[in-house]
Nucleic acid binder design. Structure first.
Lengths: 223, 223
DNA sequence: CAACTATGTAAGAGGGCTATCACTTGTTAA
DNA sequence: TTAACAAGTGATAGCCCTCTTACATAGTTG
């Protein structure tokens, strides 16, 4: 064949992206460089420039892949957290927020699970919103990245509107708050902040992030 | 005198720290470098090394100053948010902050104000917990920094225990959650995340951060 | 005023990174 | 088979950074 096992290296383009993820997971954006990625793959430092015109375009491809994978991780976690609604916009009746009726309560669980999923994904890969929305990428024209980030945000907004927020417009600040708390826990964890009083397990902090998200959802004004 | 207007430059050490803040505010940690700080002050690139043995020690001094200033900003905002308790552990009575009763409610207001104060301070200075707890500073021995960060955390924990959390031990995760949400909003704002749907004012996001913190405090288990 | 000390400069070694260029090697297709 | 193309290499220019060394200068102190 010719498509899957390409010329000299064998799909160096894809390898560059996965090696970039490894680098990000180990040292964050600070350590990321085209030269380091090439070194890790054992290719010359000029090789990446056959596939990406410059550093920012490689980073943009990583950003697009991260948005895609993060969306998948979030969807998986959301489904695991509660029964998937037949319709994302939730045409359910106004049942109470008692113990666990199917409608809004399950939707709230799914939405809260986003925070934990975000935390776990970014701790594992190093590629969170600081990479997906890295300022240096604003000038980069990359249709795939645009598409993936849009899909990610749409998914988050869908999960939010499936709870009983009054409107799509109200869902935006709710999603932003959940992202903020998830990103905050993640960023502090990555900087070793939680290691002050003895190292804390990833799962402990992931649970905290999820719980905080749940509190934010509960506090949201209801119609 | 000789203390205030020192030798050649006039307290270059302090000037290096304030110039570092400016640099952080403009370009974040990514743009910070000893050479850039020196350039900004119009001194040679070797001059900073008369006052700090290496880059990390300068950054550590900035971190200590940031912890000090941030603590001051937080205290000021906390006092403005509610009547200062005569004793940090509460024991106050009337004089409401608008509609709420004095004791725990006012304490909750003060604690929630931490998030807004953090957001405003870091947006203005660029020096948040990612600088104060920068991983590269773990190896740096800097007594002042240790002292300032300890004081900052103690202040936060005091504000938390002044609410009706069951114990000091319970205050730690509450403080961490508030820091997480504040840091998350700040970090996303700095990366331009909120500029997606039209630029948002600093105060708008600061209010969101404060409101999110309030939700986290309300959700805390009570004795 | 003469040593001494503190502070700053000029120059540069040494290193990493981005990006380019001419060249080589393997693959495809006329 | 051979021209054209795709993909990788070695070398290198140019930039910025950290940190050092030798030297210059300005206050301090006996």
């Amino acid at each position: 064949m010719s498509r899957d096992r390409a010329y000299h290296h064998g799909d160096l383009r894809a390898a560059l992206i996965t090696a970039s993820f490894e680098l990000l997971a180990e040292g964050g954006l600070r350590r990321f460089s085209v030269a380091a990625v090439a070194r890790r793959l054992g290719v010359s430092s000029a090789a990446p420039y056959r596939h990406f015109p410059d550093r920012d375009h490689l980073l943009s491809a990583v950003s697009g892949a991260a948005a895609h994978d993060l969306r998948a991780a979030i969807l998986k976690a959301a489904v695991a957290a509660g029964p998937p609604a037949p319709d994302d916009l939730g045409a359910t009746d106004p049942a109470a927020a008692g113990s666990a009726p199917a409608g809004p309560a399950a939707a709230a669980d799914r939405l809260a699970a986003v925070a934990g999923a975000y935390f776990r994904y970014v701790v594992a890969t190093g590629a969170g919103f600081h990479v997906i929305y890295a300022p240096e990428l604003y000038a980069v024209a990359d249709e795939n990245r645009r598409e993936q980030t849009r899909a990610l945000m749409d998914t988050l907004l869908d999960l939010a509107t499936a709870t009983d927020v009054p409107s799509y417009r109200q869902a935006v600040p709710l999603v932003e708050a959940i992202i903020a708390v998830a990103h905050g826990y993640t960023s502090l964890f990555a900087d070793g902040f939680f290691a002050r009083g003895g190292p804390q397990a990833v799962e402990t902090v992931a649970a905290r992030a999820t719980e905080a998200a749940r509190a934010l959802i509960r506090a949201e004004p209801r119609p």
